[in-house]
Design a protein around this nucleic acid. Sequence first.
RNA 1: GGUGAGAUACUCAAGCGGCCAACGAGGGCAGACUGUAAAUCUGCUGGUUUUUACCUUCGGAGGUUCGAAUCCUCCUCUCACCA
Length: 401
Amino acid sequence: MFDLDVALSEIKRGTAEIIDEARIKELLEHYLKTGENYYVKAGFDPTAPDLHLGHTVLIQKLALFQKFGGIVQFLIGDFTGMIGDPTGKNVTRKPLDRETVLENAKSYKAQVFKILDPEKTEVVFNSAWLDKLGAKGIVELTTTFNVARMLERDDFEKRFKSETPISISEFLYPLLQGYDSVALKSDIELGGTDQKFNLLMGRQLQRTYNTGKQQAVLMMPLLEGLDGVNKMSKSLGNYIGVTEDPDTMFGKMLSISDNLMWRYYELLSSKSLEEIARLKADVQSGTLHPKAAKEALAQEIVTRYHDEAAAKAAKAEFDKVHKQKDIPSDIPEFSFAGPVWIAKVLTEAKLEPSTSQARRDIKQGAVKINQQKIQDEQLQLENGEYIVQVGKRKFARVKVD
RNA sequence: GGUGAGAUACUCAAGCGGCCAACGAGGGCAGACUGUAAAUCUGCUGGUUUUUACCUUCGGAGGUUCGAAUCCUCCUCUCACCA
């Protein structure tokens, strides 16, 4: 089966905090002895999923549990989604209709089953039990907790002190999320560090409702984005989406700093901790080039979300463009009626956002035609075919006739 | 409901009648270098084929002035204190 100590150290890898580690050990031991599974819960937003590597940190941890006897409860918070998690700055949101929820769930599955084992995953919706709770159930739920304790939560406390409004419904959010754990009888719940309060609520409510269980809680850190400073998020643009094409993925992975690479290794690679330690030692001693280590990681990630052939092709393409300074094999094409002013070509081909920017870049020597730097910003392109390039990464094939 | 403070480009933040397309920082883009879209250094960062020029921007609408981001009036919104 598996070695308990190895399993535990892999489970602990990269975690921010584990509450009731002993419980996790018990569950694994019990599984080894009897083959009985246990349940690992994680909740997700019902809005349209566009997963990036930041999300996959948690999902990979779920997948890890599947290797060690865990059944994943992939919870889509279609009911709680109406309230909006107070962790963000969301106010009350519109409830999504059934159809949209199902569609989003489908999209989740497509992305998530690249990592999770579908055989060991139960996709559940919390409206299934929360809808039935009713006013009576809700009131009962609220009696299990009091306002003073609710205000212990960090962001509630801050908002209370600064007199920023807190809606009553927001108090309900942690309670309902906790109740999910009661309904699902989860043994372990995973979440980000920002979810600590909500995760602990599940633990407490399981006790209050006498489920005979008390879930262990495992928190994963928020992955830093490509800039290495802010957390990875779509709005900051510092992300790698799991559905992005291989070339982009590979390029973005290589753009992270050498430092950040180790963080990504820890949280994203499926290499064992020993292997990573060895890589790191090799880089430090100079026997392995940092770039080679980064390429290996990039290949691994591309392979996971596409396949090995795509990863190889992406690397080859990258080398072609950046090492041999060649042009990429697949570039957009535009045609114009000539003669045409170069600045117009650049903006029309979307290589530059404005004529002014185009002029500036020409002045700086950032624009090349057929690999030749150009200086003349008045340049007119005569009939013919040209490869126009701005900087290192923006290319277009231009036909003038 | 009352009183006070504030709203400036992607973000933060100067400017408080002409020298303002607007200091500075972050971010972004580019150049050099290289190991790569790492690191470091440097430049650029509203728009426009009138490019040592012109046009549009400083919460919104008016007004004063030869001239306003800067002064006045009203409005909208944010924040702080009081109720």
